[in-house]
Simulated scan of single mutants.
Amino acid sequence: MSIEVENITKLYGAQKALDNISFSVKKGEIVGFLGPNGAGKSTLMKILTTYIGASEGTAKVRGFNVNIHKKDVQHAIGYLPEHNPLYLEMYVKEYLAFNAGIYKTPASRIQEVIDMTGLSPEAHKKIAQLSKGYRQRVGLANALLHDPSVLILDEPTTGLDPNQLVDIRHLIKNIGKDKTVFLSTHIMQEVEAICDRVIIINKGQIVADKKLKDLRDDKEQIVVVEFDYRVEDAFLLKLPNAKTVKNTHGFSYDISFSTSEDMRSHVFDFAHDNQLKILQLNQKNASLESLFRELTS
């Protein structure tokens, strides 16, 4: 196993941030650690990376106990914390060279991670000059410098614009082909776009652990569509297999369907036949959203 968590509890005074949680992650899996803010996600990340200790229980990374073999764990892990700490006054290559020296990593690895993370166009700049998306790339490049087998990413897409989101998602997905990725987020779309499996935590306890494939096999889905003007709910309910319609904001609607067939093409044809313009069209996993709301509300 790449990650093993067994009966971990973390106390802050009388408050239980983590309450006797257990799970394991196999080599090569991309696992989404999903939960509302304050659920305990970052606390577990800090325990796995040896930053803080657990009050009870044991955790291992690649067989190394996080309390006993801290150096071995740190070499096995690449970590991108929620608030990506960077030296803004340093140049990208300078910053990576500085960290490569700490890891005793060959200098040739610097250009490899720059290419891997798509940093080449900005590599000559100071980090302070970079956009949030490119700063996240610098953080990922730094996490990959010592070629770790396990990547732990805490809220890696927070604050990114839609284009940056797509780029970072694609990058993480590619990295996951060769490494185990444990990804913390409170955004369900991130899990659906990147992960093979989801673990949901609420109030310090694991409340679900499921393969995304099993959730996708459920015959339910939500199509998110934005039109150029308001449409009556009853009109949209004429779509085949439509169950409910919710006007989320403006001219945007969540339409739930009771079928496993991808209904986006039907929504597109429906709009065309009724002279509607579509400004946005996406699909969400209704099962994951329903499960999350049911378990964390």
Rank of each mutant, 00 (worst) to 15 (best):
A128D: 14
P121W: 03
P121L: 12
Q136V: 05
V113W: 05
G133H: 02
N142P: 01
T117G: 10
S120E: 13
G139A: 09
E112T: 15
Q129E: 15
A128H: 11
I110F: 09
A123D: 10
I127V: 14
R137G: 06
G118C: 01
A123E: 12
H124M: 14
D115E: 15
L140Y: 09
R109E: 11
S131I: 10
A143H: 01
K132C: 13
K126C: 12
Y134H: 08
G133T: 15
S131D: 00
K125C: 14
G118V: 07
G118A: 06
L140H: 00
A128T: 14
V113D: 05
K125I: 15
I114Y: 00
L130T: 07
Y134I: 03
Q111N: 14
E122L: 06
R137A: 03
N142K: 06
A141G: 15
I114V: 14
V138W: 04
E122P: 03
A123N: 08
R137F: 02
S120A: 09
I127E: 09
R109F: 09
A128G: 02
R109D: 11
R135K: 14
H124Q: 14
D115F: 00
A143C: 07
L119K: 08
D115Y: 06
S131P: 12
K132L: 03
I110E: 13
R109L: 06
I110R: 02
L130V: 09
S131W: 12
V113T: 01
T117F: 07
H124Y: 15
G133S: 08
G139N: 02
D115L: 11
G118I: 03
Q111D: 09
L119H: 05
I114W: 02
A123Y: 07
